[in-house]
């Protein structure tokens, strides 16, 4: 038992590894704060475009969404990071992560929001347009607020996944939490830093998880 504790929950190791872990936690927080709004913004753009019925918009949009949902995010990220310099664009690690998540995560948020937009009855749009609201104003003030409310659990689930997915930033040498924890592990020959990272993720995500299950319970209750 002592050996177990020593290997997984050693306070001494934690205090030694803390500077490295803290750096990683900060990077992960910054990544999340960068990547989630980017993805949501991409999603809003895609979902808004999806309401356009013109085939010249519709089919390229479908191809776009399908492509970036099908490409594994890790592959996409490596592609951007290693590939863009070849066409003279060196965006750096943070730039690559921003672009990669905008493309991948935006496609997912976009599909969720599209379902939300489609769940808003046509009559809402007609009522808004009949009072002189433009297409954009109708989207912003009438459709999107209802759409978001209707798919809030899915949006939160996706956000949880996105925060976890920030760990792939380590492949472009961004020192995020999991990467730093593994560094610390290899220096200390001890699993405690990994456990510490797990606890940090848990503390970070638990409020969202709680919120999600409350919303899901409320939806179940509403359906009954």
């Amino acid at each position: 038992m002592d050996l177990f504790l020593e290997t997984f929950f050693s306070w001494q190791i934690i205090s030694e590894a803390w500077p490295i872990l803290w750096q990683g936690l900060q990077a992960t927080l910054m990544l999340s704060v960068l990547v989630v709004p980017l993805g949501v913004a991409g999603g809003i753009i895609l979902a808004t475009l999806s309401t356009v019925r013109n085939p010249w918009v519709k089919w390229p949009l479908r191809a776009w969404v399908d492509t970036f949902r099908a490409l594994p995010p890790l592959v996409l990220l490596v592609f951007i990071f290693a590939g863009l310099p070849f066409i003279g664009l060196d965006v750096g690690a943070w730039g690559a992560v921003a672009i990669g998540f905008f493309l991948n995560t935006g496609a997912y948020y976009g599909e969720i929001l599209r379902a939300g937009i489609e769940s808003v009855p046509r009559g809402q749009i007609e009522a808004a347009r009949s009072t002189g609201l433009t297409r954009g104003q109708t989207m912003a003030h009438v459709v999107l607020p209802q759409a978001v409310r209707n798919v809030l659990p899915d949006l939160i689930s996706n956000t949880l996944e996105v925060v976890k997915l920030t760990s792939i930033a380590s492949v472009v040498a961004l020192p995020e939490l999991l990467f730093q924890a593994r560094q610390a592990q290899s220096v200390t020959y001890n699993a405690t830093p990994i456990m510490a990272a797990a606890v940090a993720y848990f503390i970070l995500l638990w409020p969202l998880v709680r919120l999600l299950s409350r919303l899901e319970n409320r939806q179940l209750a509403g359906r009954r």
């Binding site: 009855p121 009559g123 809402q124 007609e126 009522a127 808004a128 347009r129 009949s130 009072t131 002189g132 009438v142 209802q146």
Partner: peptide, 14 residues
């Protein structure tokens, strides 16, 4: 359209 008010069967309130 501001000069033409419309009322629908299904109310369509936000």
């Amino acid at each position: 359209r501001q000069r033409i008010g419309m009322v629908f069967q299904s109310f369509n309130l936000y």
